[in-house]
């Protein structure tokens, strides 16, 4: 499978090196050929690679590739080869993060179950504010400016753990709640929601001594728990809402425990969170028996943290 494309590349190398009209013509023909191969088999790794190899020579329009792959993803919106190809072309073009983010918003609003698009958002958000030329907000407080600066340096270093701004997280919580209120048993939004919760926790972990961050996190967790409880009132049978509730209770137990008695929460509240989290995981063992082993593990983690 690879060998046939290897022979074509061997023949094309001198033509591309020569450049000019002939090279452009040859590249266009090659794109037509890979398109025919991909129409027969959209999962052909070797055909996708060949197309990337041709495109990398910059002899043809990159914007046309974006249009093509959007058509493909309209027909098959989870095709991971298509998404990978889009990222490849976007990188070559130096596409603004904002434009990519808008594309994922369109795909998600068209179909909340598009996990591939949620995934891509998780890659884009940490980059969002590290782009050159993004103007600082007029009311930029010193702490927000410091936060942005910290993010820029960590994403330049290629860290995957760059903090996502609080205000961005608020927008994401809103978007993902639309997804799980519309399709409560679709995994896509819920897995993304768990990542968002981790992003909120990361702010506190980055500043464990900060009472402001701790209080902010407690507030976010409280809001999300209220939202999930509303959903459970509407859809009492939603297993995913219950999983998220159990996870939220476990996080609240950690945050509450860190507050100690000083923030007006006695140890009684903390113990109650712990019992609630353990009970929520235990319920799931019966409701979702395939994953009982995981729930037992989560329950024992909750119990251990409370000691």
């Amino acid at each position: 499978m690879y060998t046939a494309w290897n022979h074509r590349r061997e023949a094309l190398v001198p033509v591309f090196k020569e450049g000019g009209q002939q090279a452009m013509q040859a590249a266009a023909e090659e794109l037509a050929l890979t398109l025919r191969a991909l129409t027969r088999n959209l999962k052909s790794y070797s055909a996708w690679h060949h197309r990337k190899w041709v495109i990398g020579h910059r002899l043809t329009s990159l914007e046309a590739e974006i249009t093509l792959v959007e058509t493909l993803l309209d027909a098959d919106d989870r095709n991971f080869h298509g998404w990978a190809y889009r990222r490849f072309v976007a990188d070559l073009m130096g596409m603004p993060v904002q434009r990519e983010l808008e594309y994922t918003t369109r795909k998600i609003q068209h179909n909340f179950s598009n996990y591939s698009a949620w995934h891509y958002r998780s890659k884009l958000l940490p980059l969002l504010h590290s782009e050159p030329g993004v103007p600082a907000a007029a009311d930029d407080s010193p702490s927000a400016a410091a936060e942005r600066q910290a993010m820029i340096s960590s994403s330049r270093a290629g860290a995957t753990g760059a903090l996502v701004l609080h205000q961005t997280l608020e927008i994401e919580y809103e978007l993902v709640s639309q997804a799980f209120f519309t399709e409560p048993e679709d995994q896509s939004g819920w897995i993304y929601h768990r990542w968002l919760l981790g992003c909120s926790v990361a702010h506190w972990q980055a500043a464990p001594e900060s009472e402001a961050e701790r209080a902010r996190l407690a507030d976010v967790l409280g809001c999300q728990l209220a939202l999930v409880s509303d959903l459970l009132d509407l859809e009492p049978g939603s297993v995913w809402a219950r999983k998220t509730r159990a996870h939220l209770l476990g996080l609240m137990q950690r945050v509450g425990g860190a507050a100690g008695g000083s923030a007006g929460r006695g140890s009684g509240g903390e113990a109650a969170d712990c019992v609630a989290a353990a009970a929520a995981w235990e319920d799931l063992e019966g409701l979702d028996p395939y994953r009982a082993g995981y729930y037992r593990h989560a329950c024992s983690v909750s119990a251990r943290a409370s000691v």
């Binding site: 991971f80 990978a84 990222r87 995934h119 998780s122 990542w195």
Partner: peptide, 13 residues
């Protein structure tokens, strides 16, 4: 990735 899994290249689902 954000879900703890891995993709084919950086950025891959």
């Amino acid at each position: 990735n954000f879900d703890g899994g891995f993709g084919a290249q950086p950025g891959g689902e």
